[in-house]
Design a protein around this nucleic acid. Structure first.
Lengths: 250, 250
DNA sequence: CGTTGCTTTGAACTAGCTCAAGACCTGTGG
DNA sequence: CCACAGGTCTTGAGCTAGTTCAAAGCAACG
């Protein structure tokens, strides 16, 4: 079981404090672990959820399909996230949860999660806080979708993912794996695949970043960040490890 | 004090159950009531919030201004809503809270709210649930912004507001007051004022609704709803009053 | 070594934008 | 009671960011 809930506790520690007893409570939650291939629908739109999904390895995304087949992706989730934690109090799913890459995920019954946080106000507050940060990220994406054009939107997306990958300890220098096709990229940004391709080429031509073979390399962070007008404070990252860069001050 | 917290308890009862003791706890929260004119910034982007704002009368919106002055509106809030309840666990505001019309609002200190929900898991869960429904509405708006064109977006917006006004008991038959300019409408939908005007004219020409003098009148609900592909389930409305229409089945 | 899925390119088209001006409406002060 | 001011709504006209369609190139995989 080692290394499973660890992703979760380390994620939670980037956004708040965990007491030893809170950590123990989390560790006591039974988890059913499974490996799933890319594209698997983990939870379906309309379903009544009775458990939550912890991402242990790989990436997961939330999306909704429109009757005409068009897809909008709402968020991306690296290891440590519980993308459907909201289902704890909103049982009926209003979107899909899908594996973006081959993944390892762990299922935790709502019943067990509720039991673990019962009589632990600080742990409850921390999980609540996590769902609120999720909502803050939605606002940031809405701002992009409603008020920015494609180039800035895409730059902003890469800034956010890079920062979150860094929080999750998934970066190596200025690059990180991101198992995403250009078509996915388009469905996140609300643009067509063709335009996603051209916008990406623009970012490459400006030598701001590279994205090839599912690996993103940030070439000029400061310029990328300023093009994107990226302000990471909505991610509410608390860094306490000495020697690490605080994205809020990057 | 009568009629102040009432808007809140009745809002909460549309999304879940309140015990007498929960209701008493809410009623015991000290509220500082004030009347504010349209356009007042209630809480500013970047501010560290120490209290929450309950809307008692009028409409409030959340928005963010971009450096170039462009504004994106994230949500609208009628009486009964606590638009910044999230600040309870996310103190630093990442957007503005503004009075859309002349308003009466009540301020509740975070300290007092925390005290009221302490040792009341069911009340805590209900407030948590409220913030999750807020996030679900963000997803619905993101879907519109990213994947629908202007006409459908606007139709969807009117469907949502109508339904929420109905939940809050603010409709009279098929019309309701909505203190919104066309420029606001554009900033919600991510389109220009000019296009907002033309899109609204289109809806009028199709005889789906009317919007004049800050009053919306729904003319053909079923057609509007189907144009908008509106499914109200994301609002998680629980209707228990006999004789009322359940929007989930409208 | 062919199939399948992803990326790239060109070219014609369109939804929505910007700019600019006129119409309308409401409240205010003289 | 009028006139003016400031905000809001409406309209026209030219422009642009992004779309759709279609085809070709490329890579991985059995």
């Amino acid at each position: 079981m080692a290394g499973t809930v660890e992703a979760l506790t380390s994620r939670l520690e980037t956004i708040g404090d965990l007491s030893d007893s809170d950590r123990a409570a989390l560790n006591s939650i039974p988890i059913h672990i499974s490996s799933i291939p890319r594209g698997t629908e983990i939870v379906a739109d309309g379903e009544i959820a009775t458990s939550c999904c912890l991402v242990i390895e790989g990436y997961v995304y939330r999306s909704k399909l429109r009757p005409d087949g068009q897809r909008q992706i709402f968020s991306l989730h690296p290891a440590g996230d519980i993308p459907d934690l909201h289902s704890l109090h909103l049982e009926k799913m209003d979107h899909n949860l899908v594996a973006m890459s081959d993944c390892t995920v762990g299922r935790m019954d709502h019943r067990d999660v509720r039991e673990a946080i019962e009589d632990r106000p600080s742990l409850t507050a921390l999980l609540w806080r996590d769902t609120l940060i999720d909502a803050a990220a939605f606002r940031a994406w809405m701002l992009m979708l409603g008020a920015a054009e494609a180039l800035e939107r895409m730059a902003h997306l890469f800034c956010e993912i890079y920062t979150r990958a860094m929080m999750a300890g998934l970066t190596e220098g200025n690059s990180f794996r991101l198992p995403l096709t250009q078509s996915d990229l388009g469905d996140i940004l609300g643009i067509s695949v063709v335009h996603a391709n051209r916008t990406l080429q623009d970012l490459r031509a400006r030598r701001l970043l590279d994205f090839d073979q599912h690996v993103v390399t940030i070439l000029q962070w400061e310029k990328l960040r300023s093009l994107a007008r990226f302000d990471p404070s909505y991610l509410h990252y608390l860094d306490r490890r000495a020697g690490r860069v605080d994205p809020a001050k990057m």
